[in-house]
Design a protein around this nucleic acid. Structure first.
Lengths: 337, 337
DNA sequence: TTGAAAGCGCTAACAT
DNA sequence: ATGTTAGCGCTTTCAA
């Protein structure tokens, strides 16, 4: 293993000079710099991470806590994780992957041991048990998702409330009066996951303002659960002409079911999804959708964190404005029979 | 920040005693141990990761390289990543998440800096450019996926060849003679991804032995691509009665399309998927499938690695035997018209 | 512009 | 069964 001392000797300079060439924290003459860089290359030197962390007081590692459950939006989580990892690298950080399994202890362990300089939390509950710890520690953190109380926290999220409202507005404009909202699995609501509740609230509020009727139905993954849900919806509100879906695993089954029932999309029924662009574009019917900007969320979480680690920027809540893309799954409400 | 020295002082023992209580590497009297443990608890001590890594020569971190692309099997990757992270914790390791982006450089950086003690690589190409580096370094590694030449490497993978063969056997037994294999996107084959090619090879070989005819068609994600692919298949082989699908994003579109064309599953056409159990069980038709054991792959990769790190076990190739579960999507071939 | 040297907090010989 | 101590490889004052 090549050490900094060996590089220094090889280049005929002191250890500190090599260190400063690496960190750029003091000016180095061009010639020295070149000699040092040459030695580094020739010897194949890589600074020891542990020693760096110990001496420098920072590990250059960001911890990312992902949910253990996979009952929702797996591709979204994955996209966020990848965006976090790649963005972190561009800022000189590596990413430590933590699953929710350890719960709050993971926060203690990671901050306490100096394993990571900062953390990003996903799958934030409205009343998340990790929040007190985050507020206590002086290690920077960013939440992807909004808890109920954001005081003293930095958060990034899609403005789900606005997203819900946007869906209603679009359908209202097309003349729909009775709409159904097919949501995530019941468990997601039961554990008070922010995005699910906020979407629902935003959607309901706007619907009330615009005078639309809304039926909200959480829905488990899979075709059968969806079929039962839809049957109940048409049973209770036969006049339903618009569907808003926020449940990736329900999208394709819904389209299949409607097709099977002879309900044309969008002539008889409009379908609007809250999902990643990819899903909307690849569905069997091009879906009008409000995009879940997974990459942007991951990227900007890292950027906020990097800013905090550099002493720039303080806490703030960064809400991403939802965007609705009209595709082929929504159209004017059919004339009442 | 609480240090080991402070704990030692608080407990009235030497630093080394605290260290040994923590590591269990030498016997400690019950009373001292208790005093030390109490001090640790009271002071809220967490060993500094950097100092540990420096002094101990090991970081207790495993690096996991996941593919940057998301053109296939995202849920599988996610499941593997989660399994790796949770299993690693049970062995006392944390997981560093690397994306394929840096390529071979990531291997150099991580092994060179001592950031991680070992690594797990996913998305292995048959002729992967990272392999030479892995063979050079003395840091343990495990591949999830099989390259062409496994000499000197430790690998975990589903026996995809056997999986392909199993699919053919099942269909052959049901009397199918003409089958179509809808595979991953063309790019996946073009970059010689092991699992895709091996499945195809296994499937073709067994088909030849059993006298079945096979049409292999790679397929991009999305409904339209699938529709075109299926149209071509029935065009070239109108007598096709069995489909094998190894492309998660093609499963539901295929079922929808067949339904739409009035081809009943399994009465007119049988469909067999190579996919995670969850996908098979939740599809609009319960799919007969060969499972992709994502969790098991992640778990056993970590276990092989832990064994190597403990000095136990050497290189080996651990192939997981495929299992076929019969559900509702396959049945006897229809009598020829 | 560069060097010397004092730690950072822990582990693991080496003592006792 | 426990204490003493010399590093691990780097960063960063303090000096020149």
């Amino acid at each position: 293993m090549v050490t900094l001392a060996e590089v220094a000797q090889h280049a005929g300079v002191s250890a500190s000079t090599v260190s400063y060439v690496l960190s750029g924290k003091r000016s180095i003459s061009a010639s020295t710099r070149q000699r040092v860089e040459r030695s580094i290359r020739e010897l194949g030197y890589h600074p020891n991470a542990g020693a760096r962390a110990l001496a420098g007081g920072r590990s250059n590692i960001i911890a990312l806590m992902i949910p253990l459950r996979t009952d929702m939006y797996v591709p979204v989580m994955m996209e966020i994780a990848i965006a976090v990892a790649t963005t972190a690298r561009t800022h000189g950080y590596d990413v430590l992957l933590l699953t929710g399994e350890e719960g709050p202890d993971a926060v203690r362990r990671v901050t306490g041991s100096g394993l990571a300089d900062a953390m990003i939390l996903m799958d934030v509950q409205l009343d998340d048990e990790r929040l007190p710890l985050l507020r206590e520690t002086r290690r920077p953190s960013v939440l992807i998702g909004l808890p109920a109380d954001t005081a003293g926290l930095t958060c990034v999220d899609l403005d789900w409330g606005a997203a819900g409202a946007l869906c209603v507005e679009h359908l209202a404009l097309l003349g729909h009066r009775d709409i159904a909202f097919i949501g995530e699995a019941p468990a997601v609501y039961e554990r008070h996951t922010g995005f699910a509740e906020r979407t629902l609230d935003g959607l309901r509020a706007r619907a009330r303002e615009l005078g639309l009727r809304v039926l909200h139905r959480p829905c488990e993954a899979g075709y059968d659960a969806l079929a039962v849900t839809v049957a109940r919806i048409f049973d209770e509100r036969p006049g339903t002409t618009g569907f808003v879906v926020q449940n990736e695993s329900a999208v394709e089954p819904l389209l299949a079911l409607l097709r099977q029932q002879g309900r044309a999309v969008p002539e008889d029924v409009s379908v609007l999804a809250v999902c990643p662009e990819q899903v909307a574009a690849q569905a069997s019917v091009r879906l009008t959708s409000v995009a879940v900007p997974a990459q942007e969320m991951g990227r900007s979480a890292v950027e906020l964190l990097a800013a905090k680690l550099d002493g720039r920027g303080g806490q703030e809540v960064a809400l991403i404005a939802p965007e609705l893309t009209v595709r082929a799954s929504t159209g004017p409400a059919p004339a009442a029979p």
